[in-house]
Computed example of a mutant assay.
Amino acid sequence: MSEVAVIGPGSRVVMHFSIKLADGSAADSTKVHGKPARLTIGDGNLTKNFEDCLLGLKAGDNEEFTLQPEDAFGKPLPENIYHIERARFSSDTPAEVGAIIAFSQPDGREVPGIVREITGDVVTIDFNHPLAGQQVTFAVEILSVEAS
């Protein structure tokens, strides 16, 4: 009889997951698009805390894990809030409260920011992760595990 692979460091995992907020609303789900997530434990795609929750699971397991903000997407950091002159926005990319805008970094990467407030000629942009500060529940359905 063959041994069942369990998730450990370096395991390749295929799974469906959903992220639910404390109020029960869904923030994300792979099932919406019918495309499971594929990842390797330790590759940096997931936070260490989330990976730790997966350790020891095997194909067929369905689990839920509730993580506090500091263990999930972190707490919002004041240094990730920027105030930018409204004149720097164009008609192609207008500053509107709630809009998510991609900002180019000097190294060419794009970082999304959320327009939080517009006061006169100043636009407040929040570069914190949209789920920062939120308690989240991860529900996972492990489809397959390949040990490293």
Rank of each mutant, 00 (worst) to 15 (best):
S2D: 14
V4P: 12
V4F: 02
A5V: 07
V6S: 14
G8C: 10
G10L: 02
S11G: 08
S11A: 15
R12G: 06
V13F: 03
V13C: 06
V14I: 14
V14Q: 14
M15L: 15
F17A: 04
F17D: 13
I19M: 07
K20C: 08
K20N: 14
A22K: 14
A22M: 04
D23K: 09
G24M: 08
S25V: 05
S25G: 11
S25N: 13
A26W: 10
A26P: 00
T30L: 04
T30Y: 02
K31V: 05
K31D: 08
H33G: 14
H33N: 15
K35W: 01
K35I: 15
P36Y: 13
R38C: 08
G42E: 09
G44N: 12
G44E: 11
N45M: 06
N45S: 15
N45V: 04
N45Y: 12
L46G: 04
L46T: 08
E51G: 09
E51R: 06
C53I: 00
K58A: 13
K58W: 01
E63C: 10
E64M: 07
E64K: 10
L67G: 13
L67F: 11
L67H: 05
Q68G: 01
Q68S: 13
P69W: 03
E70N: 13
D71G: 00
D71L: 07
D71M: 08
D71S: 11
K75E: 15
P76N: 04
P78A: 11
P78K: 11
E79P: 00
E79W: 00
N80D: 06
N80F: 06
I81N: 05
H83I: 08
E85F: 03
R86Y: 06
A87L: 06
F89G: 12
D92Q: 11
D92W: 00
D92G: 07
T93M: 04
E96G: 09
E96H: 02
I100Y: 02
I101F: 02
I101V: 15
S104F: 00
S104E: 15
S104I: 08
P106A: 12
D107Y: 02
D107G: 07
G108Q: 06
G108S: 09
E110H: 13
V111M: 12
V111H: 02
V111D: 01
P112G: 08
G113L: 01
G113R: 02
I114C: 09
R116P: 00
I118P: 09
I118L: 04
I118Y: 08
T119I: 04
G120I: 10
D121F: 00
D121A: 13
D121Q: 14
V122W: 00
V122C: 09
T124Y: 05
T124Q: 11
I125R: 02
I125W: 01
D126C: 03
P130Q: 03
A132K: 10
A132E: 13
G133D: 09
Q135G: 03
Q135L: 01
T137P: 09
T137K: 07
F138N: 05
A139I: 06
A139C: 04
A139F: 00
A139K: 05
V140S: 05
E141R: 05
I142C: 01
L143R: 04
L143I: 14
S144E: 13
V145E: 06
E146G: 06
A147F: 03
A147W: 02
S148Y: 04
S148N: 11
S148L: 03
